[in-house]
């Protein structure tokens, strides 16, 4: 190595070489600190959550903590209604946004003529920038009466929240999924078409499998957006901390999500009280859920990526 570098270095005075090495070291150092700092920050956030929320796990019997009754005034802290509320709203949102988002992405990436795509894509990306509180308003004023007219006892239901959330996560899903489709080499499509596949067959059998890791990420980020959203959901889900009764009407009852509970009650609790630390405990649960979603996404993409790179890419 050193011998090979000599002719190059010979033309540069030794001082300057030392200077360049320092420059390299400093830049490397800065980049390393920047990279590590995000890990440190996440670790600190989690530690902070733990410190504030741990008393709830220690002082409230687990049976009560995961019980069905959330009445903080009566010292009853059952998280189950909130968990179920978040779950129902999120599942509903994903059930709406996933098929809609993926088919839109397929249309944009594979079927739409270029000029239409040039118009649609920026518009969809603008949707991502609408403040969630505005969507909450929209849901409250426009959507809720509509749903009440459908026969629900009130317009402020889990389904209303799901609709708003689906709308909010659509731009994320579409944008990332479309990028994933776009990254599939044109040769794959040609290869399938050249042996007699129709356009739809080529999309289904070749383009979608090839884009799978990217599509997975799109789905996971969409779910993450749905489960973490607070304001809009708080406005339209009715905020009743009840476990909805099972049956066909499960989506048409008021619920309260974990995020909405924290936002609504944080201002009223005494710092250090049991109620206070229970709200942080909810934060810990949320943190763990989003961590699990990310880990799952990483695993799915990781396995797929490995399979793909075995023996070298194309």
């Amino acid at each position: 190595m050193a011998a090979a570098n000599q002719p190059l270095d010979a033309s540069i005075p030794p001082d300057e070489i030392a200077e360049r090495r320092w420059g390299e070291l400093i830049i490397e150092g800065v980049i390393r600190v920047a990279g590590i700092s995000s890990i440190v920050i996440i670790a600190l956030i989690f530690l902070f959550l733990l410190r504030e929320g741990l008393p709830a796990f220690l002082d409230i019997p687990l049976r009560q903590l995961f019980g069905t009754r959330w009445y903080p005034i009566e010292e009853m802290f059952g998280l189950l209604p909130l968990l179920v509320g978040s779950l129902i709203v999120t599942v509903g949102a994903v059930a709406i946004s996933l098929p809609l988002g993926l088919t839109t992405a397929i249309y944009l990436g594979e079927i739409a003529p270029p000029w239409l795509r040039e118009i649609l894509k920026p518009i969809i990306e603008v949707l991502a920038g609408i403040p969630s509180i505005v969507l909450g308003f929209l849901g409250w004023i426009a959507l809720a009466p509509l749903i009440q007219n459908l026969g629900a006892p009130t317009g402020l239901t889990a389904f209303t929240g799901s609709l708003i959330l689906a709308y909010m996560s659509l731009p994320t899903i579409i944008s990332i999924a479309e990028d994933a489709l776009y990254a599939v080499p044109k040769e794959y499509r040609d290869g399938a078409l050249a042996i007699g596949a129709t356009q739809w067959q080529a999309i289904w059998r070749v383009v979608l499998p090839a884009a799978r890791p990217g599509l997975m990420i799109a789905v996971m980020l969409g779910i993450g957006r749905a489960i973490g959203e607070t304001m809009a959901v708080m406005m339209v889900t009715g905020n009743a901390a009840n476990i909805p009764s099972l049956g066909s009407g499960i989506f048409f009852q008021p619920v309260r999500t974990m995020t909405a509970t924290i936002a609504a009650e944080m201002g009223e609790v005494a710092q250090g009280s049991l109620h206070y630390s229970t709200l942080f405990a909810i934060g810990i649960v949320l943190f763990l859920i989003s961590f699990a979603i990310n880990a799952l996404a990483g695993r799915l993409v990781g396995v797929e990526g490995l399979r793909r790179s075995r023996g070298g890419m194309l």
Binding site: D190, G191, A194, I195, G196, T198, R205, P209, L314
Partner: peptide, 20 residues
Amino acid sequence: VSALRRRVSMVFAVPTPLPG
């Protein structure tokens, strides 16, 4: 067209195996 492409098949410059 699909039937035509089965009668007149094509192989490209870049090998294009399908996922699978």
